[in-house]
Amino acid sequence: MPILPLAELRAGLPRGARLIGVDPGARTIGLALSDVTLTLASPYGSLARGKLGAAAAELAAIARKEGAGGLVVGLPLSMDGSFGPAAQAAKDFGRALADAAGLPVAFWDERLSTAAVQRAMIEADMTRAKRAKAVDAAAAAYMLQAALDATAG
């Protein structure tokens, strides 16, 4: 499947199609889902980071169920904006996931998204156990919301 600039991916979606935000972590993959107007991102859940085929199959099933037409994968650039090993790993994973799930993909800078979400959860006095369960999907929503806001037109 093609890798597209986000604006091009968004413009090419069929009317009413959603986007899935993907935050690939070391142990889990955070997922978020946009609304059909591509205005609001919401946490959706997370997948265990295991075999690529299994994650892609689950993602494809979610896309069918929710009417998603593309993926926005978080790209963890270095703090100076450079493209390091973590960003390359996320890009390789996102490309393979998109190919296996049959969905076009765009990448979006997700520096500090997890840290920002963790900080907000701590300020909300959320317990460590609850934060651990919710942080991956919330970080994916944070990243997807930034992408939607940047391409709103």
Rank of each mutant, 00 (worst) to 15 (best):
S113V: 00
P14F: 04
A124S: 10
K65F: 09
A96K: 14
L97C: 14
A129W: 06
E66A: 15
L31G: 14
D92T: 07
A138T: 06
T39P: 00
G67S: 06
R128E: 05
L52P: 08
V117Y: 13
G81C: 05
R111E: 12
A138P: 02
P2R: 13
M79K: 14
I3Y: 01
A60D: 11
R111D: 14
G81Q: 03
V135D: 05
D23Q: 12
I3L: 09
S34W: 06
D23Y: 14
S42T: 13
A140Q: 06
D125V: 12
L13C: 10
L59C: 09
A124D: 08
F83R: 01
A90L: 07
D92V: 06
A146L: 01
E8T: 04
W108K: 08
E66K: 15
A98I: 04
L33T: 04
A90T: 08
G30A: 06
A41V: 03
L144F: 01
A32F: 07
I3E: 07
D109I: 00
A140E: 08
D125H: 15
A141H: 11
W108I: 02
G21R: 14
A60W: 10
T151C: 04
G53F: 12
A90R: 08
L9K: 10
G74A: 12
G25A: 04
A48G: 07
K65T: 11
E123V: 02
A26G: 04
L47K: 09
T114W: 05
D149I: 01
A54F: 05
P24F: 09
L71P: 13
G30Q: 06
K133I: 09
T127F: 06
E66C: 13
R111P: 13
G12I: 00
S46K: 15
G30P: 09
L97H: 14
Q145C: 05
E8V: 03
S34C: 10
P14D: 10
D125F: 07
S78M: 02
A147P: 11
A55I: 13
D149N: 04
R119C: 00
A17Y: 09
Q118T: 12
A115L: 11
A86H: 00
T114F: 03
R15S: 13
P104H: 08
E66S: 13
M143V: 13
